[in-house]
Nucleic acid binder design. Structure first.
Lengths: 231, 231
DNA sequence: TACTAAATGTCGTGG
DNA sequence: CCACGACGTTTAGTA
């Protein structure tokens, strides 16, 4: 990994055209040749970048650039597309290289898959007498998160989201439409379950006869802990 | 901006729980206190991070950590949520600070807004006799990209995407459903216009009687140039 | 390889 | 400030 602090201007041309005027920035060159241009603020997203696979070529600036004060010209080309990042460096304030080695990678926990697992284990959260049929119930257009039955034996498809928005309701609607064409399964009703449901998503869901359930992740995890201790 | 290369382990706890085992990484501390943890590969996204507003506190490691070889303990807390990033530093290989100043910011061009503008100016691209009613035609559930009329005076709603996928068809379908309830407007048909339309999106659109049009950005821009030169 | 859904998404815009 | 859609989305998982 190479770290360069430099006064530079940057131009990107590819899926869009973008320009960064002359200013002091961090240029981060990774081992795979990818380049990130960071300012001293904003979020984790760089101002500009080139994703791997790509190659960095350091060349001499053109006459006009030299007159304007450019001392180095970096051209980063993507290997598979026409995407190109051009960095015109006026002054290098810092330049260091470091050997990092391969990263062992990230271990995650607590996302949608976990919510689904917890809800499947505590399916009566959705209502008394509810029973799990199966998780990831496969249909022709993809897996339904949870298929279960209510106390009366009626089929219910559950779509789980961390944040419930309109596209999640659309997704569940497509599943319900398909499943209700299957005479062995129909009638199937829907439950839209999420830690947080946006008002417009709730309105759309209710308009389509889909019940909305707000999930309490802490409570679900809490019950899970208690049960774990029992065994 | 502070750049630290260190052997460290990292734990994030907030919207999810994540852990990075001990390895050598770049720790980037921005002027606003935000922290990025980068490896020497992957994309522009850090392995872990904390977005502003947040505060970085450097403290002494606990006894157990000291025994394990931890020399510094960084705790980054988000100002508004319970999100927390903990960095356990075993060895610092590089540490430097740099004054960057405020970045003048990015200038962009060539995205959906531009496609919409070009298509509105050249609405007959969609068919002979077509005329523009207006861009960003407002409905109760949001703006329709373009509303126009065909040669016979029938209303047509156009949804524009750079890449046409299923959710874009769903979006247009919602608009059409709503607009067709308005007796002043109905009947309204739909056109799904994009530089590239995915097969499944095309199938869904045609299934719903929505016409698909592939946009040639270069051609639209080319005509635009020609017209510009005429005036 | 192609396609879809998730994301600690982030970012801008309009109400 | 909230809600929504775009994004050079990126990324992960699956058929």
């Amino acid at each position: 990994m190479r770290l360069v602090i430099a006064r530079c201007s940057v131009d990107y041309d590819g899926r869009l055209t973008a320009h960064l005027p002359l200013a002091t920035r961090l240029l981060l060159v990774k081992a795979d040749g990818s380049v990130l241009v960071h300012s001293d603020g904003g979020s984790y997203k760089p101002l500009n970048w080139m994703s791997p696979p790509c190659t960095l070529e350091v060349g001499e600036p053109a006459e006009a650039d030299v007159v304007a004060g450019v001392t180095q010209l970096w051209t980063v080309r993507h290997a598979k597309t026409e995407d190109r990042l051009v960095v015109r460096i006026h002054e290098v304030l810092h330049d260091s290289a470091h050997e990092l080695g391969v990263d062992p990678g990230l271990v995650k926990d607590g996302v949608e898959a976990h919510l689904q697992q917890l809800l499947a284990e505590q399916i009566t959260t959705l209502g008394d007498g509810y029973s799990l049929v199966r998780r990831e119930y496969m249909t022709a257009i993809g897996p339904v998160d949870i298929l279960c039955r209510d106390g009366a034996g009626a089929s219910i498809a559950v779509e789980i989201k961390r944040r419930g928005e309109i596209d999640g309701v659309e997704q569940l609607t497509r599943y319900l439409e398909l499943m209700n064409r299957d005479p062995h399964l129909a009638p199937v009703t829907g439950i839209f379950a999420a830690q947080e449901i946006k008002p417009q998503a709730r309105t759309l869901a209710q308009d389509r006869g889909i019940r909305c359930v707000t999930l309490d992740y802490a409570a679900l995890r809490g019950h899970d802990d208690v049960e774990s201790r029992l065994f």
